[in-house]
Design a protein around this nucleic acid. Structure first.
Lengths: 330, 330
DNA sequence: TTGTAGGCGTTATCAC
DNA sequence: GTGATAACGCCTACAA
C-alpha cells in the first residue's frame, strides 16, 4: 500500500507539499500540483484513514444507531443513508441498540475515540440528560425519533399531523369507535407523544371519546397485532376501526381479523403508519400514513456533514411532509 | 479522552507496561497488572482504535457487503452478523454493492488500508479472478453466495438440495408443468447454478421436461413477480405450478394471480425461497424453503474471527441445513 | 519483569 | 511556495 512518502519520493517533492495537494491547500504551483496528482494516480495512492483520524482529522465515517435493522422502516432508512453517505465519500457503521440503554451508550462512546465523525440516532433509549453530554465529542443528529430540545439537530416529520390525518380519515368514513395502537409508552414528549396528541385532537374535534380499553401501547410486531385482535374480540364494546402506529402491527391485525371471519374494512377498518412494502402485500391492501424515508436519510446525511464541517456547533431542524395513502383497508 | 500515557502517569509505570497489560502479555507481576487495570477503569480509558490500526494491529471492525439492505433476507443476515460481532467486541461496517462491480471493488479496497480487519461477502459481482487478489490483504469470507473455489472460506447452504426439494414437492402434489424463476442469470457456478441444477435434477428424475418459456431469469422484486404472472397468462401452454427463487417474487406472483382471478394453489401453485416474514403475510400463506439465516450470520462471524486470529491463512467450508416449510400456496 | 526509543501515515507549525 | 519536524496514541524490538 503506497504512502504519502512514496508519492513524495517519486515526485521529488516533500511530504508537506503532497499533503497540501491532497487537502486542496492554496499556494501551490499548479505545475507541481499536476505532478503530484499524476503520481498519486499512477501508484494508486489512497490516504490512510487511520493515520488521518489519529492526526486529528475526520474519519469519513458516520455511525447510525437503529433499534433493529430487520424492521423495514429502518432498513429503508439505512439504505438511504448509506447511499447518500457513499456519494459523499463517507462510510456507514451500523449499530443496533435493540432497545438497550447500555448498547446505545456504548455506541455513543465511539464519538470520543473518533471512531465515527458523527452519529445519526434514529431512536432514543436513554434520557436526554444522559445523551446530551456526548454531543461535546462530535455532532449528533436525531432522525425520526426526537426530543423537545432546541440544542440538537433533528430531521423529523409532523407526527401529530400524521396521526391526526389518519384518525380523521377514519372518522370521515363514518367511524366513531376508533381504537389506537402505539409502539411507545405514553411518554411526555417526542414522536410517540405527538402521535398520541394527534389522535386525541382528532377525536376531540369530533366530540368523540375513546373507550380506554381501546388504547394499546407497546405493540411492535405482527404477532402483537394478532394479539390485539384477540383482545378486541373478547370485548363487549368493540371498536369498528383501529389506527395502528406501525404497518407491521396493522398487518397482524388484518391477518388475525380475517382468520376470525371479520370483514375488512366493513367489520373493522385498519390504518397503518409507514407505508412499508407489506402494505401492498397484505390483503386487503393497507391504508397507511407514508413517511418520506428516502428524503429523511438524505437530509440527515446532508445535515450531519454540514455539522461536521462547521467549526462552531450548528443546530438545525428539518421537518418533512407526511401523506395519507388510501388503499383498501379503510 | 484519556490515553495510554495517562494510565502510565497515574500508575507510575511506563507506557510499555500498560500496553502489555492491555494486550494480555505474559511476564507482568500480577500486582502491577491489577494496578493498571484499576487505573484504566477509574479514568475510563479505552484504547484508540485508529492508533492501533495505524500501528498495524487489528481494528476490531468487519465489513459486510450486501447487494441491498432493504431485501429482508439481507437485513436479517446483517442483523445476525451485527449481534454476533457485538458479542465479540467487533463493529460492523455495512456496504451496499447495489449489484455494481465498481462499488464492490471499492469496498474490497478498504482491506488494504486496514479500515476493516476482514470482509464478509454475501454477494459476488466481479469475476473471481478480480476478487481473489484482495485476499492477500486480509481474510475474506463468502456467506450465502459462493464460488467453486477451494481457496476461500464459505458458509453456505445446500442450494441444490433446496431447489430439488421444492421442485419435487410440487411434483408430489401432482404438478407436471412447473415453471422456474430465478434471480440470477444462468451462471456456470455458484448459488444460482446449484439451484438450477437442483430444479433440473428433480424434473429429470420424474421424466419431466419444462417448456423453455417457463424459465424466468433475473427476477428479484414483487413487481417482477407480478410481471411473471402477466407473461404466463399470455401463454397458450401455461404452467400449473411455479418455483420461485425468492419469497418476494413469489409474493408478487400470488398477488397478481389473485387479481386475475386465479385460485392458489388450485390454478397455480407457488413455492418461494427464504422464508421471509412476508411468507406468512401473503394470502394464501407461502410454502417456501427456509434458510437458517441466523446460523449463517453467527457461523460467518465465528469463522471470520478465527481467520483473523490465525497467523497462516486458513480455509474452511461450512454447510448448513435447509428445510421445506409447507403452508397454503401449494 | 520493566523501561526506552522508534515508527506506523498524516498534517499543522514554523522556518526558509 | 516549499520543506523539515513534531505530534496524534499505540505497540514492539532491544536493552537493562
Amino acid at each position: 500500500m503506497p504512502t504519502i512518502s512514496d508519492v513524495a519520493r517519486i515526485t521529488g517533492l516533500s511530504k508537506s507539499t503532497v499533503s497540501r495537494v491532497i487537502n486542496n491547500h492554496p499556494y501551490i504551483s499548479s505545475q507541481k500540483r499536476e505532478k503530484v496528482l499524476k503520481a498519486m494516480e499512477e501508484i494508486g495512492y489512497y490516504p490512510n484513514p487511520s493515520a488521518r483520524r489519529l492526526r486529528g482529522h475526520t474519519s469519513n465515517t458516520i455511525g447510525v444507531i437503529v433499534p433493529r435493522i430487520v424492521n423495514p422502516f429502518f432498513s429503508y432508512l439505512v439504505n438511504s443513508i448509506e447511499q447518500e453517505a457513499f456519494k459523499n465519500n463517507y462510510q456507514v457503521i451500523i449499530f443496533q441498540s435493540n432497545d438497550l440503554k447500555d448498547k446505545e451508550l456504548y455506541f455513543l462512546n465511539l464519538l470520543k475515540n473518533r471512531q465515527v465523525d458523527g452519529i445519526i440516532m434514529t431512536s432514543i433509549e436513554n434520557d436526554w440528560e444522559t445523551i446530551e453530554p456526548y454531543m461535546q465529542y462530535g455532532p449528533v443528529l436525531l432522525c425520526n425519533e426526537y426530543v423537545n430540545q432546541s440544542s440538537v439537530s433533528k430531521v423529523r416529520l409532523d407526527q401529530k399531523k400524521g396521526a391526526y390525518m389518519g384518525t380523521e380519515h377514519l372518522i370521515n368514513k363514518g367511524h366513531q369507535k376508533i381504537a389506537y395502537c402505539t409502539g411507545g409508552l405514553f411518554a411526555g414528549y417526542g414522536r410517540d407523544f405527538d402521535r398520541n396528541t394527534g389522535y386525541q385532537k382528532a377525536m376531540d374535534k369530533h366530540q368523540l371519546t375513546p373507550n380506554p380499553n381501546w388504547i394499546f401501547i407497546q405493540r411492535h410486531s405482527i404477532e402483537d397485532g394478532k394479539k390485539v385482535v384477540k383482545e378486541i374480540l373478547s370485548m363487549n364494546d368493540k371498536p369498528t376501526a383501529i389506527f395502528s402506529g406501525s404497518d407491521e402491527v396493522a398487518a397482524g391485525i388484518i391477518i388475525e381479523a380475517k382468520e376470525n371471519g371479520l370483514k375488512i374494512p366493513d367489520d373493522l377498518a385498519v390504518i397503518g403508519f409507514d407505508d412499508q412494502p407489506l402494505a401492498e402485500i397484505v390483503d386487503p391492501k393497507l391504508t397507511t400514513i407514508k413517511q418520506p424515508i428516502d428524503e429523511m436519510g438524505i437530509k440527515s446525511v446532508e445535515l450531519l456533514i454540514q455539522m461536521m464541517n462547521s467549526k462552531d456547533s450548528m443546530v438545525e431542524e428539518v421537518q418533512l411532509p407526511i401523506q395519507l395513502i388510501e388503499r383498501e383497508s379503510t
